[in-house]
Amino acid sequence: MKKQLVLLLAIGILFISFQSFNPEPPSEGVFPDEISAILKSSCYDCHTAATGSEKSLKALDFEQWDQYRLTKQIGLLGDIGKVVEEGKMPPGKYLEKKPDRKLSEAQKKLLADWTKEEADKLMQAD
């Protein structure tokens, strides 16, 4: 009877501890919805594995965001802000094919502001 109780307790503890290992779906909820929507339409074609090239994924793979270490994330946020503000991304060749993916000035500002806030936040997080 005592043995059974110990076993039950052990199973219970095991069960509870598994709850904290419940993985979140990747990139779901990582970025604010508003930002996610912009990234999805203007960036994910090349910067997620399903449709991206090796080169663009090597530079940045949004699905791997959680896997990047803190310093890398901060650097990437800086890069995203810069290329978006300078109009280097999305690239002209891509926009020739999909002109509707061009970022509006408002979207650019939203993204750039977010990258700065997020980078600041991450720098504090350590």
Partner: peptide
């Protein structure tokens, strides 16, 4: 470089 770019430069350097 600003702070973010310095951090990014070192991270990319390592990579």
């Amino acid at each position: 470089l600003d702070k973010v770019d310095k951090i990014g430069a070192f991270a990319d350097f390592c990579d």
